[in-house]
Design a protein around this nucleic acid. Structure first.
Lengths: 212, 212
DNA sequence: CTCCAAACTAAGCGATCGCTTAGAAAGTCC
DNA sequence: GGACTTTCTAAGCGATCGCTTAGTTTGGAG
């Protein structure tokens, strides 16, 4: 920053290559199954060059986990505002369905990233784990609010909103485990179907028009 | 076997202690995050003693994974036969609900084992992974059959039975990730609720009597 | 008791681990 | 060009990895 812009760009490219290499490796073999030499080689540099850009291997994991969780929150927020703007701001079923679509399809579309986000949390250090936990609480409370809103509005006949919200999140999260890019369904298709499944889980009363 | 029975019992006890130590460690820190010295120490023996009973660390994982998958299949089978015997052999809703109850509550009750079963498969060797994959196919096809049976009988209004079966399995599997023994719900409670959620997912037509 | 196999330990092998050091290249600014 | 920062590598540090070897202890069988 003190000097030049090209050096900055070179560094950021290297950082991006390292993040990508770490992402692939962590997703495939797990954090503890991945060596710093694996990451360096996949990024096309020497093992020592990793430490020019990141202080520890765990910092690489944290950056990936943080960016992934923020992506999840973002696609959910976008789906929520889009859903509200389009259909007169308060159709609980449509809102829930659209957020579940976004949440679920992300776990398929970004499956490799999603695996690291969902299954490598235990390898984070205490401080980093706490920060990630905060983001997860936001995501969980958003989903819970969507379910309770529909129940309070009288359009969801769900018995246990807390558990229903948990189940809906489970459905989306587990997509990261079983999804195969070469399988029969694409991310959007899975998202669409899971959006409908979520409405089944909250016992959406079909007295009003389907949200389209 | 050639001599004595106590020596045999001593060996089996040691094997059991090693399996339990490995189970706890693999569940907490993952296969690659666990050292053979950790396992040995938790089992109360020297690092070398591990190799008297198991040839490799991966063999310990395989034994745990195999036993876990067989347990899952067994609790599902028992729920199925119990459900069929009690209620005149063919109430698809009751059968599905009871199997989901058993499947889900197992993932809470045996959470530590379930985590290894569901999240450490990638660390298995090719041969062992193939054997486990066979068991998983059995479990998946059983669940799929339960869903399609109900659809064919006309009591499930599910649009996509294949995906519904996958979603139901996802719900149960993900319990191993989020369940906390000191949380608000116990394994049976979760199983009961998830059994009902499964019926929602397959759009069970409530024209006939609830299965109890 | 002797005999013997199973169970176990102390020590350590070669390999790999995360990470550091010292210094060479690469590129920017004046 | 010279001065300076950033990026990168070669080499290697101490620790730990999965696992083996050689030899001791254990305990029932005959």
């Amino acid at each position: 920053m003190t000097r030049g812009t090209t050096g900055n760009a070179r560094g950021e490219l290297a950082r991006a290559r390292l993040l990508d290499a770490a992402l692939q490796a962590f997703a495939r073999r797990g954090f503890h199954g991945t060596g710093t030499r694996d990451i360096a080689e996949a990024a096309g540099m020497s093992p020592a060059a990793v430490y020019v850009h990141y202080r520890t291997k765990e910092e690489l994991l944290f950056e990936l986990s943080l960016a992934g969780h923020r992506q999840v929150r973002q696609v959910m927020d976008e789906a929520l505002t889009g859903s509200s703007a389009e259909a007169g701001s308060a159709d609980p079923a449509r809102r829930l369905r659209d957020v579940v679509r976004a949440f679920t399809s992300w776990h398929a579309r970004a499956q490799i990233h999603a695996r690291v986000v969902q299954y490598e949390m235990a390898a984070l250090g205490p401080q980093h784990a706490a920060e990630i936990a905060g983001l997860r609480r936001e995501i969980e409370s958003l989903m819970r609010r969507l379910v309770t809103d529909g129940r309070d509005a009288g359009v969801f006949g769900v018995a246990n909103p807390h558990m229903a919200a948990l189940a809906i999140l489970s459905l989306g999260i587990d997509v990261a485990r079983w999804y195969r890019p070469d399988g029969g369904w694409g991310p959007d298709e899975i998202g669409a179907q899971y959006g409908d499944l979520a409405l089944d889980l909250v016992r959406w009363t079909r007295t009003d028009r389907p949200p389209g």
